[in-house]
């Protein structure tokens, strides 16, 4: 019975494919139509049904499906399109088989349903597995990338290190910031660390608490911390929330903070040549021509 049905499907594959291709066109979403050329669309659809039939012929072999799904993922085809296409295939096949047979009893009907399900289900499963697998992979890569970016530490000169913070700070990230900060201070032997919060959109009590804790810990290991990049709205929030930052030196910009840091390490920035000398030199060289 089962083989019988399979033979019917395989023998009439051309008709089924034709029916399927006619219907699949309506599934093609608007946004999808623009991103893919008609030719590519046609080819992939053909390959799609071929893969389905190969799988049916080889009694459920999924090797073709795996290669095909990898190709789809690289092309960026939406999973919903593929599952819809498979459901459509199931419907078309069932319709075809039923319309071309004279038996109409319930047994035959359920046998057709079961066997068609058996052909289609493994393919759907495999495709969904491949898709979610690739999504999870991307997600984990992005998480690692995010972690790498979350607490960078830049040693600028001897004894001065900068930690630029960008984006929202949550408890997990705050912990990482503190670890990186302390390890970095020891590693680079920095006397002053500048924490730049220019890129932190919101400073609430929790974020402030984390920053104060980090600064305290830095002080404990024998270094100094300056909080820089406090924007006007951040200053307002801090005062309105009643956060006490008196123990933590603060500066409005990284530039000012850096100058303070240089002062703390008994250094300063000087111009090698006064500005006037440069202008005079320029005038002289013009006159010489």
């Amino acid at each position: 019975m089962n083989t019988n049905l399979r033979n019917i499907a395989i023998e009439n594959s051309d008709t089924i494919v034709q029916m399927w291709l006619e219907k699949i066109d309506s599934l093609k979403g608007e946004e999808f139509r623009f991103s893919t050329s008609d030719e590519l669309f046609e080819n992939t659809n053909r390959e799609f049904v071929n893969v389905i039939f190969t799988s049916i012929k080889q009694q459920g072999s999924l090797i073709e499906v795996i290669t095909f799904s990898e190709k789809l993922i690289t092309l960026g085809w939406p999973l919903s399109y593929i599952t819809d296409g498979l459901q459509l295939f199931r419907r078309v096949t069932i319709d075809y088989i039923l319309s071309n047979s004279d038996q109409v009893d319930t047994n035959f009907f359920s046998a057709v349903l079961t066997s068609v399900d058996k052909w289609v289900e493994p393919i759907i499963h495999q495709l969904i597995n491949e898709y979610t697998g690739s999504w999870e992979h991307i997600l984990s890569i992005q998480r690692i990338a995010l972690q790498e970016l979350s607490a960078p530490l830049i040693p600028v000169t001897d004894g001065i290190t900068i930690m630029p913070l960008i984006g929202t700070i949550d408890t997990e990230r705050a912990k990482q910031i503190m670890e990186n900060l302390l390890d970095g201070v020891i590693k680079h032997n920095s006397e002053v660390v500048l924490i730049d919060i220019t890129g932190v959109p919101v400073v609430d009590t929790m974020v402030a608490h984390h920053i104060i804790q980090a600064a305290e810990a830095v002080r404990l290991i024998g270094s100094n911390c300056i909080l820089v990049g406090i924007r006007p709205e951040i200053a307002q929030t801090i005062v309105n929330l009643g956060i006490d930052l008196t123990n933590l030196p603060t500066k409005s910009s990284l530039k000012k903070g850096f100058i303070t840091a240089l002062e703390m390490t008994n250094r300063k920035v000087i111009n090698l040549k006064p500005m006037e000398d440069g202008i005079e030199e320029m005038i002289n060289s013009i006159q010489g021509e």
Binding site: M178, L182, V185, I186, Q213, A217, V218, L220, G222
Partner: peptide
């Protein structure tokens, strides 16, 4: 002098 990062974190 020389307080270790881990120690500093525990203390805080």
């Amino acid at each position: 002098t020389g307080i270790q990062p881990a120690v500093a974190m525990t203390l805080i």
